[in-house]
Nucleic acid binder design. Structure first.
Length: 427
RNA sequence: GGGGGGAUUCCAGAGCGGUCAAAUGGGACGGACUGUAAAUCCGUUACUUCGGUUUCGAAGGUUCGAAUCCUUCUCCCCCCA
């Protein structure tokens, strides 16, 4: 199965320039995708493009990652209704190096001729003077052509307008394509469907300035069945950096996908074959409550993005927090493992002296910690059966806690409802 | 400038001078159910040392008693100029 067929059956293909498939069938072709360093980590919104590059490399082609140290300074207007805030140069450079590190997990940078390669357009733009640019690049593209682009038209017709800087963006990105085509024989640019306009400006530049041909492939933007935006949770974006989104939360994000989304996402975000996926779906349909699909999806992505060990911990944590969490399991964990498991959970410190005598449960939850804003509320919640300490439901508002309740002599696990955990650490 | 209407607890929106910590709906949070889903059902939704204490735009006043009546102020909306 060739690269294009692969994208097609997985439902990833959005648009492809005529002739692209023939070109790819002729042999190894270098192709690239650009990533703007708008943050110091990639997030799951980038995952489609990462998967595209993985398939590209698996099909025997050479994937090139372009990190937009220069384009990031301009700001892509595609899909944006208002002018972007510009990032400072230091922040951008820091973002670039963070992102570069993340790619090493996904692609093979040491596989001979089709090794992945990473480039930064800042390298060829930093010494490119404005005058040279408008003479050598700007000359080839008409403003009429640029204005016809959707990303530009919308902004011009809209009320917000568009700065010259952002208007220039497609030319800058277009030049990247020309540069890579000329210097690295990179003949294909890929990207999300919103990038079509920018990519085509590049192929146009290759034709007019270089007299050559270049090709474009775009992928489907990920949609959720319920219409909400993909990749966002209440707590913000889902990052690939474990320091920004813990592997446990990462795993949970995928596990919580709806049945409908899971069926399309397992094709996009995992490398399972068509036969494997269809058999998983069969099992899933027979017993949807087991969520075999979501589990397969979550497992594979978590391992690829983080590691087997991270998945193990995520699984254990999930099992404890949602399944049959037991006191014994907690007691079996080391201090470090506990901290890992409750990563992101609010923590409160309390001195051991305070617990040497008995402390009323409401005092503990309100005065000693800030789990509840008032004692009345804490008592109501306790009476309503919404509070557990160390997995034991507390229903008496007069219940007292003492140092005997500490797990391994050092902490208490408080639950408000089923899902809200708090860790009280005695020091 | 003239005339009219309004300001209520997270939001919307009821509220005869006493029985109003304030209807109802939404939201939020808990519980049951469940697939860590959806729907549904139930409960809670000012503080409290459970004796009480502070709330209804702000400040005064009338009254045994005021979210409800009076005065002044602040802000919002509508209509006519």
């Amino acid at each position: 199965m060739n690269f294009v067929e692969e994208l097609r059956w997985r439902g990833m293909l959005h648009d492809i320039m005529p002739g692209t498939e023939d070109l790819l069938n002729k042999g190894m072709i270098a192709g690239y995708i650009g990533f703007d360093p708008t943050a110091d980590s990639l997030h799951i919104g980038h995952l489609t493009q990462i998967m595209t590059l993985i398939h590209y490399q698996r099909a025997g082609h050479k994937p090139v990652i372009l990190v937009g140290g220069a384009t990031g300074m301009v700001g892509d207007p595609s899909g944006k209704s208002a002018e972007r805030n510009l990032l400072s140069e230091e922040i951008l450079q820091n973002n670039v190096s963070c992102i570069e590190k993340q790619f090493s997990k996904f692609l093979d940078f040491n596989s001979g001729t089709n090794s992945a390669e990473m480039v930064n357009n800042y390298d060829w733009f930093k010494n490119f003077s404005f005058l040279d640019f408008i003479r050598d690049v700007g000359k080839h593209i008409t403003v009429n052509y640029m204005m016809a682009k959707d990303s530009v038209k919308k902004r011009i017709e809209g009320e917000t307008g568009m700065s010259f800087t952002e208007f220039t963006y497609q030319l800058v990105q277009g030049y990247d394509f020309y540069y890579l085509w000329k210097e690295k024989n990179c003949q294909i640019q890929m990207g999300g469907s919103d990038q079509w306009g920018n990519i085509v400006t590049g192929t146009e530049l290759v034709r007019r300035k270089g007299g050559g041909t270049a090709f474009a492939i775009t992928t489907q933007l990920i949609k959720k069945a319920d219409g909400t935006k993909f990749g966002k949770t209440e707590s913000g974006a889902v990052w690939l950096d474990p320091a920004k989104t813990s592997p446990y939360k990462f795993y949970q994000f995928w596990l919580n996908t709806s049945d409908e989304d899971a069926k399309s996402w397992i094709r996009i975000f995992t490398l399972q074959s068509q036969i494997e996926i269809e058999s998983i779906e069969k099992v899933h349909d027979a017993a949807p409550h087991l969520r075999v699909l979501q589990k397969a999806l979550a497992q594979e992505i978590t391992v690829r993005t983080h590691s087997e060990a991270a998945l193990e911990l995520a699984l254990k944590t999930s099992d404890f927090l949602f399944g049959n969490g037991s006191l014994e399991f907690l007691q079996s964990l080391s201090g470090a493992e506990v901290m890992d498991m409750f990563d992101g959970v609010p923590k409160f410190n309390i001195s051991k002296n305070e617990l040497s005598a008995e402390v009323n449960i409401a005092d503990l939850l309100v005065d000693k910690t800030q789990i509840f804003p008032s004692k009345g509320e804490a008592r109501k919640m306790i009476t309503g059966g919404g509070i557990s300490i160390n997995k034991q439901k507390i229903s008496d508002p007069l219940y007292s806690v003492s140092s005997n309740d500490l797990i391994n002599g050092s902490y208490l696990v408080v639950q408000k409802g089923k899902k809200n955990y708090f860790l009280i650490i005695a020091q």
